[in-house]
């Protein structure tokens, strides 16, 4: 299988940092807040690989650093350390060594992101179709008719009513906003997609349909995905492999089935038990 992403020793510290930050934080220390300097070690030493067509889960409690991982990889927030290599066909991109323009190019053309908060992924002041058009225009498609066709096809694929293509997403339901976000993320057919708590807060029936959609997309397009969620049900349904995070560190990693059936780490055991 082809590797899509290789992440090594990723770390992000909010605050000034000090020589004691790392030893004073993490699962053993039972905190991510350095008592010496007050910095937040949001993530430290996070490493994983992602392969073509694979969905990797990132699980853990709120505050464990899950979002920080995908934000760094999607260039929303620069990491404090570590490396990530994106394998795109025959080319390799060392993500954090690229200049801002190259990073923006990758983000617009080769990555997609769906946020928990649709406000972050969508411009609420332009229509659903316009949101998708924006991404297509970033990739230099300049034909209005073609842009519109493609926007409609994407919205149809994500089961958004075509009669709403010209409506503002701020008037949409939460589930529909997520569908538009997914359509937008898929506009350039990216080989890599990040999904951060995309179903959190939605009705269960709405959740189920969106999760189905994500699985269908993965099967159709062979898109590699990193799925961040604190919901073990989502992990079980979507992911083949997962990493478990606590206080910014990866404490367990493996096949999702194994993690859920036979968790090794006491913390994971508690997580799984509480979700039963």
């Amino acid at each position: 299988m082809n590797k899509v992403l290789e992440v090594r020793n990723l770390s992000k510290i909010y605050g000034p940092g000090c020589p004691h930050c790392i030893e004073s934080t993490g699962p053993e220390a039972d905190t991510n807040l350095c008592p010496h300097c007050g910095s937040v070690v949001a993530i430290h030493d996070v490493s994983f690989d992602l392969f073509e067509g694979e969905i990797l889960g990132v699980m853990g409690e709120s505050g464990s650093g899950k979002s920080t991982v995908v934000k760094a990889l999607y260039f929303d927030q620069a990491p404090s350390g570590g490396e990530a290599i994106f394998f795109d066909g025959d080319t390799q991109h060392e993500l954090f060594a690229l200049n801002a323009a190259r990073q923006r190019w990758l983000r617009n053309h080769r990555f997609g992101m769906v946020y928990q908060n649709p406000n972050l992924g969508l411009n609420f002041n332009i229509s659903a179709g316009g949101n998708i058009a924006e991404r297509l225009l970033m990739s230099d498609l300049m034909d209005y008719g073609a842009i519109r066709e493609r926007a409609k096809a994407l919205l149809a694929r994500t089961e958004v009513l075509l009669s709403r293509v010209d409506d503002l997403p701020k008037h949409f339901s939460g589930g529909m906003q997520q569908r538009v976000q997914i359509a937008k993320a898929l506009a350039t057919q990216p080989p890599l997609l990040f999904l951060d708590e995309v179903t959190t807060g939605l009705d269960l029936s709405v959740q189920a349909r969106i999760l189905d959609l994500i699985l269908e997309i993965q099967q159709e397009l062979k898109t590699a995905m990193v799925v961040v969620t604190h919901d073990l049900g989502v992990i079980r349904l979507l992911t083949g492999r997962a990493i478990v995070m606590k206080y910014g560190r990866v404490i367990e990693t493996g096949l999702t089935d194994q993690i859920l059936e036979d968790p090794q780490h006491a913390y994971t055991q508690r997580l799984v038990a509480s979700a039963l």
Binding site: A100, A101, R104, N123, I126, S127, G129, G130, A133, E134, R135, L137, M138, M142, Y144, I147, R148, D166
Partner: peptide, 22 residues
């Protein structure tokens, strides 16, 4: 300034798109 530097005018073009839609 960054948008100009990178010739990133997609958001301006979306305005035109929305204009044609309406």
């Amino acid at each position: 300034k960054i948008m100009h530097g990178e010739a990133d005018y997609s958001r301006l073009l979306v305005k035109l798109y929305e204009d044609i839609v309406q």
